[in-house]
Nucleic acid binder design. Structure first.
Lengths: 139, 139
DNA sequence: GTTGACCTTCCAGTAACTGGAGGCCCTATC
DNA sequence: GATAGGGCCTCCAGTTACTGGAAGGTCAAC
Protein backbone atom coordinates (compact mmCIF):
# COMPACT_ATOMS: atom_id res chain seq x y z
CA UNK A 1 0.00 0.00 0.00
CA UNK A 2 1.30 3.44 -0.91
CA UNK A 3 1.23 6.42 1.37
CA UNK A 4 -1.72 8.04 -0.39
CA UNK A 5 -3.98 5.08 0.25
CA UNK A 6 -2.89 4.91 3.86
CA UNK A 7 -3.54 8.60 4.22
CA UNK A 8 -7.08 8.08 2.94
CA UNK A 9 -7.64 5.09 5.20
CA UNK A 10 -6.20 6.55 8.36
CA UNK A 11 -7.34 10.09 7.86
CA UNK A 12 -3.80 11.31 8.46
CA UNK A 13 -2.09 13.54 5.89
CA UNK A 14 0.73 11.87 4.00
CA UNK A 15 3.08 14.49 5.39
CA UNK A 16 2.18 13.46 8.90
CA UNK A 17 2.72 9.81 8.12
CA UNK A 18 6.18 10.55 6.78
CA UNK A 19 6.84 12.56 9.89
CA UNK A 20 5.73 9.65 12.06
CA UNK A 21 8.18 7.47 10.23
CA UNK A 22 10.93 10.05 10.77
CA UNK A 23 10.42 9.96 14.50
CA UNK A 24 10.17 6.20 14.57
CA UNK A 25 6.49 5.64 15.26
CA UNK A 26 6.00 3.48 12.18
CA UNK A 27 8.45 1.62 10.01
CA UNK A 28 6.90 0.88 6.66
CA UNK A 29 8.76 -1.31 4.19
CA UNK A 30 10.10 0.08 0.95
CA UNK A 31 9.26 -1.02 -2.56
CA UNK A 32 12.01 -1.40 -5.12
CA UNK A 33 11.13 2.03 -6.50
CA UNK A 34 11.76 3.64 -3.14
CA UNK A 35 8.10 4.14 -2.32
CA UNK A 36 6.97 3.36 1.21
CA UNK A 37 5.04 0.12 1.37
CA UNK A 38 2.60 -0.08 4.25
CA UNK A 39 1.33 -3.34 5.70
CA UNK A 40 -2.03 -3.75 7.39
CA UNK A 41 -0.27 -3.55 10.73
CA UNK A 42 1.17 -0.18 9.77
CA UNK A 43 -2.23 1.10 8.81
CA UNK A 44 -3.60 -0.15 12.08
CA UNK A 45 -0.84 1.56 13.99
CA UNK A 46 -1.45 4.82 12.18
CA UNK A 47 -5.14 4.69 12.91
CA UNK A 48 -4.26 4.06 16.55
CA UNK A 49 -2.00 7.09 16.45
CA UNK A 50 -4.68 9.20 14.85
CA UNK A 51 -7.14 8.35 17.60
CA UNK A 52 -4.62 8.86 20.39
CA UNK A 53 -3.67 12.23 18.94
CA UNK A 54 -7.34 13.15 18.61
CA UNK A 55 -7.63 12.55 22.34
CA UNK A 56 -4.79 14.98 22.81
CA UNK A 57 -2.08 12.55 23.83
CA UNK A 58 1.38 13.87 23.06
CA UNK A 59 3.59 12.09 20.58
CA UNK A 60 5.64 10.70 23.44
CA UNK A 61 2.49 9.44 25.09
CA UNK A 62 1.61 7.82 21.80
CA UNK A 63 4.98 6.18 21.65
CA UNK A 64 4.47 4.73 25.11
CA UNK A 65 0.93 3.68 24.35
CA UNK A 66 2.02 1.90 21.19
CA UNK A 67 4.70 0.10 23.13
CA UNK A 68 2.19 -0.99 25.74
CA UNK A 69 -0.26 -2.00 23.06
CA UNK A 70 2.36 -4.23 21.50
CA UNK A 71 3.28 -5.75 24.85
CA UNK A 72 0.64 -8.31 25.72
CA UNK A 73 2.22 -8.65 29.16
CA UNK A 74 1.56 -5.03 30.01
CA UNK A 75 -0.24 -4.04 33.18
CA UNK A 76 -3.30 -1.95 32.46
CA UNK A 77 -2.13 0.25 35.33
CA UNK A 78 0.62 1.61 33.12
CA UNK A 79 -1.83 2.60 30.45
CA UNK A 80 -4.18 4.07 32.98
CA UNK A 81 -1.41 6.15 34.49
CA UNK A 82 -0.58 7.74 31.16
CA UNK A 83 -4.23 8.47 30.55
CA UNK A 84 -4.74 9.91 34.01
CA UNK A 85 -1.76 12.20 33.71
CA UNK A 86 -3.12 13.37 30.42
CA UNK A 87 -6.51 13.89 31.98
CA UNK A 88 -4.89 16.08 34.60
CA UNK A 89 -3.18 18.12 31.93
CA UNK A 90 -6.50 18.55 30.18
CA UNK A 91 -8.17 19.62 33.39
CA UNK A 92 -5.48 22.20 34.07
CA UNK A 93 -5.79 23.54 30.59
CA UNK A 94 -9.56 23.73 30.83
CA UNK A 95 -9.29 25.52 34.16
CA UNK A 96 -6.82 27.99 32.72
CA UNK A 97 -8.96 28.67 29.70
CA UNK A 98 -12.08 28.96 31.77
CA UNK A 99 -10.47 31.62 33.90
CA UNK A 100 -9.31 33.52 30.85
CA UNK A 101 -12.75 33.21 29.41
CA UNK A 102 -14.39 34.63 32.51
CA UNK A 103 -12.15 37.68 32.67
CA UNK A 104 -12.27 38.28 28.99
CA UNK A 105 -16.01 37.95 28.69
CA UNK A 106 -16.50 40.44 31.52
CA UNK A 107 -14.31 42.88 29.67
CA UNK A 108 -16.02 42.27 26.36
CA UNK A 109 -19.40 42.81 27.95
CA UNK A 110 -18.22 46.02 29.50
CA UNK A 111 -16.95 47.39 26.21
CA UNK A 112 -19.35 49.45 24.16
CA UNK A 113 -17.75 48.43 20.92
CA UNK A 114 -18.61 51.63 19.12
CA UNK A 115 -16.74 54.44 17.44
CA UNK A 116 -15.66 56.00 20.72
CA UNK A 117 -12.16 55.39 22.07
CA UNK A 118 -13.08 54.56 25.67
CA UNK A 119 -12.46 50.90 26.20
CA UNK A 120 -12.54 48.90 29.43
CA UNK A 121 -10.55 46.15 27.75
CA UNK A 122 -7.59 48.38 27.08
CA UNK A 123 -8.07 50.06 30.43
CA UNK A 124 -7.82 46.73 32.17
CA UNK A 125 -4.75 45.66 30.24
CA UNK A 126 -3.10 48.99 30.95
CA UNK A 127 -3.94 49.30 34.59
CA UNK A 128 -1.80 48.53 37.57
CA UNK A 129 -4.02 45.79 38.88
CA UNK A 130 -3.35 46.65 42.49
CA UNK A 131 -6.50 44.96 43.76
CA UNK A 132 -9.43 42.98 42.33
CA UNK A 133 -9.33 42.97 38.59
CA UNK A 134 -12.46 43.82 36.71
CA UNK A 135 -14.00 45.79 39.53
CA UNK A 136 -17.13 47.44 38.26
CA UNK A 137 -18.28 44.87 35.75
CA UNK A 138 -21.49 44.01 37.49
CA UNK A 139 -22.32 41.00 35.40
CA UNK B 1 16.43 50.83 34.17
CA UNK B 2 18.21 47.60 33.29
CA UNK B 3 16.49 44.51 32.05
CA UNK B 4 16.71 42.71 35.36
CA UNK B 5 14.77 45.39 37.18
CA UNK B 6 12.16 45.47 34.46
CA UNK B 7 11.88 41.71 34.64
CA UNK B 8 11.19 41.96 38.35
CA UNK B 9 8.68 44.74 37.90
CA UNK B 10 6.79 43.28 34.99
CA UNK B 11 7.01 39.65 36.00
CA UNK B 12 8.33 38.76 32.57
CA UNK B 13 11.61 36.84 32.24
CA UNK B 14 14.50 38.88 30.84
CA UNK B 15 14.68 36.43 27.95
CA UNK B 16 11.11 37.17 27.06
CA UNK B 17 11.69 40.90 27.21
CA UNK B 18 14.63 40.58 24.82
CA UNK B 19 12.45 38.50 22.59
CA UNK B 20 9.75 41.15 22.63
CA UNK B 21 12.35 43.67 21.56
CA UNK B 22 13.48 41.33 18.77
CA UNK B 23 9.99 41.19 17.35
CA UNK B 24 9.46 44.89 17.75
CA UNK B 25 6.98 45.04 20.63
CA UNK B 26 9.20 47.32 22.69
CA UNK B 27 12.12 49.51 21.77
CA UNK B 28 14.17 50.28 24.83
CA UNK B 29 17.01 52.76 24.58
CA UNK B 30 20.60 51.68 24.96
CA UNK B 31 23.13 52.89 27.47
CA UNK B 32 26.66 53.65 26.38
CA UNK B 33 27.75 50.24 27.63
CA UNK B 34 25.29 48.54 25.31
CA UNK B 35 22.82 47.62 28.04
CA UNK B 36 19.15 48.09 27.35
CA UNK B 37 17.76 51.13 29.12
CA UNK B 38 14.04 50.95 29.81
CA UNK B 39 11.85 53.97 30.35
CA UNK B 40 8.71 53.97 32.46
CA UNK B 41 6.70 53.77 29.27
CA UNK B 42 8.56 50.60 28.28
CA UNK B 43 7.84 49.05 31.63
CA UNK B 44 4.21 49.98 31.27
CA UNK B 45 4.08 48.45 27.82
CA UNK B 46 5.66 45.25 29.06
CA UNK B 47 3.20 44.98 31.90
CA UNK B 48 0.42 45.47 29.35
CA UNK B 49 1.91 42.70 27.28
CA UNK B 50 2.19 40.44 30.26
CA UNK B 51 -1.48 40.86 31.07
CA UNK B 52 -2.60 40.45 27.48
CA UNK B 53 -0.54 37.28 27.17
CA UNK B 54 -1.97 36.03 30.45
CA UNK B 55 -5.41 36.40 28.90
CA UNK B 56 -4.19 34.23 26.06
CA UNK B 57 -3.97 36.85 23.34
CA UNK B 58 -1.48 35.93 20.65
CA UNK B 59 1.58 38.06 20.08
CA UNK B 60 -0.03 39.48 16.95
CA UNK B 61 -3.15 40.34 18.94
CA UNK B 62 -0.88 42.04 21.44
CA UNK B 63 0.74 44.01 18.68
CA UNK B 64 -2.65 45.20 17.50
CA UNK B 65 -3.82 45.94 21.02
CA UNK B 66 -0.73 47.99 21.74
CA UNK B 67 -1.27 49.93 18.56
CA UNK B 68 -4.86 50.62 19.50
CA UNK B 69 -3.85 51.53 23.01
CA UNK B 70 -1.42 54.09 21.66
CA UNK B 71 -4.02 55.51 19.28
CA UNK B 72 -6.32 57.74 21.27
CA UNK B 73 -8.54 58.04 18.23
CA UNK B 74 -9.26 54.32 18.16
CA UNK B 75 -12.79 52.99 18.09
CA UNK B 76 -13.46 50.64 20.98
CA UNK B 77 -15.17 48.43 18.41
CA UNK B 78 -11.78 47.47 17.05
CA UNK B 79 -10.56 46.38 20.44
CA UNK B 80 -13.75 44.55 21.12
CA UNK B 81 -13.51 42.67 17.88
CA UNK B 82 -10.08 41.37 18.70
CA UNK B 83 -11.26 40.33 22.12
CA UNK B 84 -14.36 38.65 20.77
CA UNK B 85 -12.43 36.69 18.22
CA UNK B 86 -10.12 35.58 20.95
CA UNK B 87 -13.07 34.63 23.10
CA UNK B 88 -14.34 32.47 20.25
CA UNK B 89 -10.99 30.76 19.98
CA UNK B 90 -11.05 30.11 23.70
CA UNK B 91 -14.54 28.69 23.50
CA UNK B 92 -13.56 26.35 20.69
CA UNK B 93 -10.56 25.21 22.61
CA UNK B 94 -12.59 24.60 25.74
CA UNK B 95 -15.18 22.67 23.76
CA UNK B 96 -12.47 20.54 22.17
CA UNK B 97 -10.81 19.82 25.48
CA UNK B 98 -14.11 19.10 27.16
CA UNK B 99 -14.90 16.52 24.56
CA UNK B 100 -11.51 14.90 24.93
CA UNK B 101 -11.96 14.96 28.64
CA UNK B 102 -15.30 13.23 28.46
CA UNK B 103 -14.07 10.41 26.26
CA UNK B 104 -10.87 10.00 28.16
CA UNK B 105 -12.48 9.98 31.55
CA UNK B 106 -14.94 7.29 30.43
CA UNK B 107 -12.02 5.21 29.31
CA UNK B 108 -10.04 5.81 32.45
CA UNK B 109 -13.02 4.87 34.58
CA UNK B 110 -13.47 1.69 32.61
CA UNK B 111 -9.86 0.65 33.05
CA UNK B 112 -9.07 -1.54 36.04
CA UNK B 113 -5.57 -0.17 36.30
CA UNK B 114 -4.12 -3.31 37.78
CA UNK B 115 -1.46 -5.86 36.83
CA UNK B 116 -3.63 -7.48 34.18
CA UNK B 117 -3.14 -6.60 30.53
CA UNK B 118 -6.80 -6.06 29.59
CA UNK B 119 -7.31 -2.40 28.97
CA UNK B 120 -10.34 -0.60 27.56
CA UNK B 121 -8.19 2.42 26.82
CA UNK B 122 -5.93 0.53 24.46
CA UNK B 123 -8.91 -1.37 23.12
CA UNK B 124 -10.61 1.87 22.22
CA UNK B 125 -7.54 3.33 20.58
CA UNK B 126 -7.04 0.15 18.61
CA UNK B 127 -10.56 -0.44 17.49
CA UNK B 128 -12.17 0.39 14.21
CA UNK B 129 -14.68 2.85 15.61
CA UNK B 130 -17.38 1.84 13.17
CA UNK B 131 -20.20 3.18 15.30
CA UNK B 132 -20.56 5.06 18.61
CA UNK B 133 -17.28 5.23 20.39
CA UNK B 134 -17.16 4.23 24.02
CA UNK B 135 -20.16 1.94 23.82
CA UNK B 136 -20.39 -0.05 27.02
CA UNK B 137 -18.97 2.48 29.44
CA UNK B 138 -22.10 2.81 31.54
CA UNK B 139 -20.94 5.89 33.48
C1' DG C 1 6.92 10.40 -25.44
C1' DT C 2 4.59 13.29 -22.88
C1' DT C 3 1.24 14.61 -19.68
C1' DG C 4 -0.29 14.38 -14.84
C1' DA C 5 -0.73 12.20 -10.58
C1' DC C 6 1.90 10.27 -7.19
C1' DC C 7 6.03 9.47 -4.84
C1' DT C 8 10.81 10.85 -2.95
C1' DT C 9 14.08 13.92 -0.01
C1' DC C 10 15.41 18.04 2.16
C1' DC C 11 14.83 22.66 3.93
C1' DA C 12 12.30 26.16 6.12
C1' DG C 13 8.64 27.96 8.80
C1' DT C 14 5.03 27.93 12.43
C1' DA C 15 4.18 30.15 18.17
C1' DA C 16 6.35 31.92 21.74
C1' DC C 17 9.57 31.37 23.96
C1' DT C 18 13.75 28.87 26.59
C1' DG C 19 18.45 27.17 27.44
C1' DG C 20 23.10 27.58 26.86
C1' DA C 21 27.71 29.01 25.14
C1' DG C 22 31.05 32.51 24.94
C1' DG C 23 32.17 36.84 26.29
C1' DC C 24 31.91 41.91 27.97
C1' DC C 25 30.78 45.15 32.03
C1' DC C 26 30.60 46.60 36.74
C1' DT C 27 31.27 46.57 41.60
C1' DA C 28 33.48 44.97 45.60
C1' DT C 29 37.13 43.16 47.99
C1' DC C 30 41.89 41.95 48.90
C1' DG D 1 46.11 45.80 40.31
C1' DA D 2 43.94 41.31 40.33
C1' DT D 3 40.10 38.65 41.03
C1' DA D 4 35.41 37.02 42.03
C1' DG D 5 30.55 37.51 41.38
C1' DG D 6 26.83 38.97 39.23
C1' DG D 7 24.44 41.07 35.41
C1' DC D 8 24.41 42.07 30.82
C1' DC D 9 25.30 41.16 25.72
C1' DT D 10 24.65 38.31 21.16
C1' DC D 11 23.89 34.29 18.67
C1' DC D 12 22.50 29.55 18.00
C1' DA D 13 19.76 25.65 18.86
C1' DG D 14 15.82 23.30 20.69
C1' DT D 15 10.97 22.89 21.95
C1' DT D 16 5.76 20.57 19.70
C1' DA D 17 3.79 18.47 15.98
C1' DC D 18 3.46 19.18 12.11
C1' DT D 19 2.97 21.90 7.31
C1' DG D 20 4.40 24.02 2.91
C1' DG D 21 7.24 24.06 -0.84
C1' DA D 22 11.07 23.15 -4.04
C1' DA D 23 13.46 19.94 -6.97
C1' DG D 24 13.19 15.79 -8.88
C1' DG D 25 12.19 10.46 -9.67
C1' DT D 26 8.18 6.94 -10.97
C1' DC D 27 4.22 5.19 -13.08
C1' DA D 28 -0.06 4.61 -15.81
C1' DA D 29 -2.50 6.38 -19.55
C1' DC D 30 -3.04 8.32 -23.97
Amino acid sequence: MNIGDVADLSGLPAKTIRYYEDIGLVEPLRSSNGYRSFRQSDVHKLAFLGRARALGFTIEDCRSLLKLYADTDRASAEVKQIAEEHLDRIDSKIAELTEMRATLSHLVDACAGDHRPDCPILADLAMEHKAGSISKASG
